[in-house]
Nucleic acid binder design. Structure first.
Lengths: 206, 206
DNA sequence: AAATATTAAACAAACGTTTGATTAATTCAA
DNA sequence: TTGAATTAATCAAACGTTTGTTTAATATTT
């Protein structure tokens, strides 16, 4: 049961950190929500900060492998690779919306330096690797001479913007408060379609 | 000196809240950085939370007025209005990068309910008003039948993504740590050019 | 002199963490 | 397979700090 309980605590921590922030979530809050004793967090993870590191270690190879795999793939066209990445990003980010929100908060936060640096490097490397695919398409003269880094920034930014606030999202979709937009397959598809359409026009059109 | 000191405290608060978060910034931190006594924050603002409300009240008509003004304007084409808004957003957000980061964190955070609700409504309303301009362009058959809400989401998301982390931004621009990318006029222009180019292709091309 | 601004000190509450006792699970010789 | 020995897990209580805030005295302005 030991491993299960660790993950049980981590899942609740992700959701609380996403909504209330790291400092905004007390270990007593977390313990209560997760249904464990206050001492358990320090027992299993050593400290509140190490809990964050454990969460990142567990969850954070994230898109890295997928991007590098696609970058190396020689069968797919650059446009196919970008389409695949758009789909993957939307699915990964929307399915793990709380985790992504939590990542984002930590990325913005300079307080926990090791974590801040780690996340900055991860995000920057993923963006760079992704943009290398676009650059290859430009070199092959399949794509227009767009700004590869900022194009990737727009893709990630489009998805992240959606995930920043559930209630803003519901307002924009004209859904009632309490709706779960990120779990809605139709919305996921709508977002994928929009981003693909925008990026295709951006990359391909004269 | 009273008003000046109030604003002096607010400016330092914005920058600290942006980097360390609301709960991550103690009043003692703030007082020291701002060079005032700990009691001054409560003396001038009443509480730490009311300090946030004062900051929002001061700074947060933000883009609302500009969007509504442009929406009502009958001289400009829809495309001109969108271009104007892209420029305004980039300039406003990058010039007030700390403030925007702080806004974003509060938008993501559900802990302070009044503020969370207020910001959600503001962001949603701005997005809706902005998208109404796009909708009008679609109705006039000047624009393609794009997704207006998600198109605005992409514009705002593209800019926000840049502002989320200064060190990620510097890494991507191949600038040394410590560089101030948001103050760089050339980068601002590069971002404006990219977004305009992407959105134009998205809106206009068959 | 009255009102406003500033201060150091003190407040209770909440914080992350540790403790020492208790229970549950596992190990392993008989 | 049993039952003592060892380890792991859980708990309530307490620890020392830090937190936001208040106080009461002092300084400055008006």
């Amino acid at each position: 049961m030991a491993v299960d309980k660790r993950e049980h605590i981590m899942e609740h921590a992700i959701s609380l950190f996403a909504d209330k922030g790291f400092e905004g979530t007390s270990i007593r809050d977390l313990a209560q929500v997760a249904g464990v004793n206050v001492a358990m967090v320090n027992y299993y993870f050593g400290s509140k900060e190490k809990l964050v590191e454990a969460i990142l270690e567990k969850k954070s190879s994230y898109m890295k492998d997928r991007i590098e795999e696609l970058e190396a793939n020689t069968n797919l066209s650059e446009l196919d690779k970008i389409d695949a990445l758009i789909e993957d990003y939307v699915n990964r980010i929307l399915n793990g919306a709380s985790f992504h929100k939590f990542l984002y908060k930590e990325l913005m936060d300079t307080k926990r330096d090791v974590i801040h640096t780690f996340l900055n490097n991860s995000f920057a490397r993923n963006t760079r690797n992704f943009s290398a695919i676009i650059q290859k398409g430009i070199d092959k003269k399949v794509f227009r001479e767009v700004d590869p880094i900022l194009t990737v920034t727009s893709i990630i930014g489009s998805i992240s913007q959606v995930v920043v606030s559930k209630s803003m999202c519901n307002q924009l979709l004209l859904k009632p408060e309490g709706n779960e937009p990120y779990a809605d397959e139709a919305f996921k598809q709508r977002l994928i379609t929009h981003i693909k359409s925008m990026i295709h026009a951006h990359l391909l059109v004269k």
